[in-house]
Design a protein around this nucleic acid. Structure first.
Lengths: 345, 345
DNA sequence: GTAGTCTAGGAAAGGGCTTTCCTGATACGC
DNA sequence: GCGTATCAGGAAAGCCCTTTCCTAGACTAC
């Protein structure tokens, strides 16, 4: 392990001089010494120990992002936006996967505090669990108390700056589209019940139903895991329980993908027999067959805005930016098979 | 910023004692003091400064992984396998996206050296660029010289332990399947020419052709970016230049997705008019319509093995493990439309 | 020629933690 | 009851770097 002292000795100068040259201090150093030192640095392949540097100067340049799983396209897109801004500003991003485990999430917050991170970005749905929320809030408060910044994507139960996907509104948008296409028997492929995202999107569905004097009965909501196989399982369960369904609303595109797979397997035509809609507008949505009608969330942009908030000077009061949603009509939503008379106006 | 000294003062003990309690030293401490200290730790929300710890004890517990882009499913899967093993062994993973920029890649290697990473894992195709390879090799050598470990996934031009996807063999496998289905006019949607992965997979295609006394003419190979839009662009180019093509071999599933999109748009039936095959067997491959015939690479496992190699004791000679490939027959490959007489045996 | 102003470079004090070494106290053996 | 082994806890050195403060020399100005 070559140290700064080694370089100094070899070059016949003081450690202070080497430090100034290597870390680009504002203090002037003669060209002669500079050259001599750089030559030795090259020779010894010297790289300053980042930990020692951080200890000595205590400026923070790394940003931590805690997501459920980067390999999930939802978080992958957010992370991409985040990374872009981070490298523009010379920050190193540490990506942490919590795999939706509150314990691990806490562990990562602690770890990032220990790493002297400049900011922590929490992305993904929160948990409807007051005890956990309280513990997490306390940890984050300790972090911000020492100058750390926190921003969250979603998770409106936490303090701090936030970028909030308009989940309720998106739910309302997509469910309205489904109802307005004429569907009356609508099933919901729901993500796990403990997540705020689930609650919000469902609330949007319900509002759309209520506006039309409908309801979404509990038996037509099936909770499953937030992935393709969860979507498939929920589809099977709903279909078997209620064969007259003409539309399935999935809580995200991945679950919708699972639904399409099951329907194709059973020879059920989409949208001929049953319509399917998703949420998020992940890149793959347009390449499915039929292409997926969904609600677009500007994920890359959300990530970029989250980190931008985190790196700006803090406001006195936490800021909350809404991320707009947008209906994306594609092929997977159509009218129900038995075409009823259009709604009376 | 609460420090260990603060805790010590508040609890009325020496810093040494606090350190022993907080970091779980082997040295015994009385229950009374332990309790007193932990209470203060809780009160002050103390978290030890990781940089100071690493400086003082100099054991390394973080592993860096440099990939082209985690949001690409190929790397997402590898990273997932890697993360799993890493957290089992109590390591923190730092994910770095190089976005296929050699400069940035070097910068990240340097950064990870500075962070005192325990191991660096480089995943993804190498560059066919001797000058760059030399510089990178030098950097990595400096890292290993100070006890760091390096393993690579792919990139056989670099030293160190390696997990090598059988790209050539996979190329041979899939191209053989295409030729054996009876296709004679085959186009290749190729990833960028400077990557070793491209070269290897193409070599496999060519070997399969040669065994059948065929060739793949250069005009039927179109190089494009390694993503969906690249695949789409290459498809357009090949189709326009050579309308009699009956099969397209894509260098990965993402490019194949782009091809399917173009073909659907043009009303060309797959595999009725044109067959399409991919590479990698990403999760989405089975959910496309038609489902994609491809070559399966055990990506999660590759990631797990890469980090396992990195955390094991080093061998005297670098180890190279091959990752097996496996043909996955699905719907997108069929016989060419004008069914010719089957090959004479 | 002397006083005063710059300048480049070095000495040394941290920064927060771990760990070796040491001390003082208790327990043990005879 | 004395010497020795054992143990809990503290003092202090060290990990590698940055940065403030100082010094010595080179200039300028009169």
């Amino acid at each position: 392990m070559t140290t700064l002292a080694d370089v100094a000795r070899q070059a016949g100068v003081s450690p202070a001089t080497v430090s100034r040259i290597v870390s680009g201090s504002s203090k002037a150093v003669s060209d002669e010494l500079r050259e001599r030192v750089l030559k030795v640095v090259e020779e010894l392949q010297y790289v300053p120990n980042a930990h020692a540097q951080l200890l000595a100067r205590s400026d923070r340049t790394t940003v931590g992002v805690i997501v459920h799983d980067v390999s999930d396209p939802y978080f992958a897109e957010i992370t991409r936006g985040l990374q872009r801004v981070a490298s523009e500003r010379g920050r190193l991003v540490i990506i942490c996967n919590s795999y939706r485990d509150p314990e691990r999430e806490l562990a990562y917050v602690e770890l990032l505090r220990a790493q002297q991170a400049e900011a922590i970005i929490l992305a993904g749905s929160g948990y409807l669990d007051p005890a956990f929320t309280k513990t997490l809030t306390a940890q984050l408060a300790a972090f911000t108390a020492t100058g750390g910044r926190v921003t969250v994507v979603g998770r409106h139960e936490l303090v701090g700056d936030a970028v909030l996907p308009a989940n309720e509104e998106g739910g309302h948008l997509i469910a309205s589209a489904v109802f307005d296409a004429g569907h009356r028997h609508v099933g919901v492929l729901a993500s796990p019940a403990g997540l705020t995202t689930t609650a919000d999107r469902l609330a949007g569905f319900r509002r759309a139903a209520k506006e039309r004097r409908r309801t979404i009965p509990t038996r037509r909501i099936h909770y499953a895991s937030f992935d393709r196989d969860g979507g498939a399982a929920a589809t099977v369960a709903l279909l078997d329980a209620d064969p007259q369904l003409t539309a399935l609303i999935a809580m995200n595109d991945t679950m919708a993908t699972g639904a399409l797979a099951v329907l194709r397997e059973r020879g059920i035509s989409v949208p001929g027999d049953i319509s399917v809609v998703g949420f998020d507008d992940m890149p793959i949505a347009r390449d499915l067959t039929p292409s997926l009608t969904t609600v677009r969330l500007p994920l890359v942009d959300i990530g970029a805005r989250a980190i931008t908030l985190a790196l700006e000077d803090p406001h006195r009061t936490p800021r909350r930016e809404m991320a707009p949603v947008e209906l994306v009509m594609r092929e997977s939503l159509g009218p129900p098979p038995t075409t009823r008379a259009p709604k009376k106006v």
